[in-house]
């Protein structure tokens, strides 16, 4: 295929279009930018149209993916480009479902079988977990907040980190105030929430770092 050399202005025009559509997340932005440029190139070579015309055609193709949308899975108060919301839902949905089903199963199991749980052991475990939870969450939060590149993973972490952190910390600290007799299975579910929160935080942080390091290898001109 004959090669098209885009001018700086043309590249900026496509880049600006993605800015207007609020597609700031590197894991999506670069692949869409590349796709659009390839599409424009194809149109200019085979359909013999101008850049402007090819660009307009490409924008029309992507229009549906950039419609602003919200999702119950992420909270309806937030909306963004459909393609971004869709990706975030795909990342976050398994965590919600895992948390929901593990909580239901644990409470159900406890109510039906009434197992003889060693609350003292579990109390020690939650005490040991507290500093690790706070330290890791704060470290990941600082790392992602100060990262120059945004990803879908950092968006999800930063959007939910503070609320999750406050709720989970309160859950952990309530164990300090309760006597052994006051603990019940519902408190155990709270502990599951904290462990899941830690796992989710690690997952989002790890993937954010992976995406950013891949893109940082090649700095755009």
């Amino acid at each position: 295929m004959k090669e098209i050399k885009f001018t700086k202005e043309e590249l900026e025009q496509v880049d600006r279009y993605l800015d207007i559509k609020e597609l700031f997340y590197v894991d999506l932005r670069h692949e869409i930018l590349d796709h659009m440029l390839l599409d424009i190139e194809h149109e200019m070579i085979y359909e013999k149209v101008s850049f402007e015309e090819a660009f307009k055609k490409s924008c029309d193709k992507w229009k549906g993916s950039f419609y602003r949308e919200s999702s119950y899975w992420l909270g309806v108060s937030f909306n963004g480009p459909r393609i971004f919301i869709d990706k975030c839902v795909k990342i976050n949905k398994p965590f919600f479902l895992l948390l929901l089903f593990s909580s239901i199963l644990l409470v159900g199991f406890g109510m039906i079988f009434k197992p003889d749980v060693d609350f003292q052991l579990w109390r020690y475990f939650s005490f040991g977990l507290t500093p690790f939870y706070i330290a890791f969450m704060l470290y990941w939060w600082i790392q992602m907040k100060t990262s120059r590149e945004k990803t879908s993973f950092s968006f999800l972490f930063l959007r939910y980190a503070i609320s999750n952190f406050i709720i989970n910390s309160l859950m952990l600290f309530q164990f300090y105030g309760l006597s052994i007799d006051e603990l019940d299975l519902l408190d155990f579910v709270c502990l599951v929430f904290v462990i899941m929160g830690l796992y989710q935080g690690y997952f989002l942080y790890k993937n954010h770092q992976k995406e950013v390091s891949q893109f940082n290898k090649y700095k755009m001109l």
């Binding site: 670069h30 692949e31 590349d34 440029l37 795909k90 990342i91 891949q214 893109f215 090649y218 755009m220």
Partner: peptide, 17 residues
């Protein structure tokens, strides 16, 4: 997201693919 695909980034024609 299901872990069936992995991604790799490369620089082609001065842009990231």
């Amino acid at each position: 997201a299901e872990g069936l695909l992995d991604v790799e980034v490369a620089k082609v024609d001065n842009r990231l693919r």
